[in-house]
Amino acid sequence: MNDKKWIIAGIVVFLAIFAFPFWYNMGKAAPAPEVKLTEKAKAAKQCVMPTEYMRAEHMQLLDVWRHNVVRNAEREFVNTEGKTFNMSLSNTCMDCHANKADFCDKCHDYASVDPYCWDCHLDRSKENE
């Protein structure tokens, strides 16, 4: 049997699939998105926890907040520096970060993450517009 042409065709198809990310992104530069901070957020300087922690683990923090509010009716969060916050996505987080499209969505879209926060919570920034 001399099936060299079929074998080469197979290799070409495989390499085309393997190289999908290379040709799909050809000529595009996709740097990490920069989140936009509102004036209020800039003025506060630090979030409820350090920025590094918030970047990687904010979803865990929100999970704990939800649990404590819904199950235990606790509404006060004391952070590592002893500051007290009201545990509320809509009233605390999004009070500073009122720009959902430029703050939350930018990274979530970039990383293809689809959180279910806004299934229930309102995006106040739309009301303001």
Binding site: A30, A56, E57, Q60, C107, A111
Partner: peptide, 13 residues
């Protein structure tokens, strides 16, 4: 342990 996934994606991209 968690990582900053946007940074990981910027490396991959």
């Amino acid at each position: 342990t968690k990582i900053d996934v946007t940074a990981a994606k910027s490396l991959a991209m």
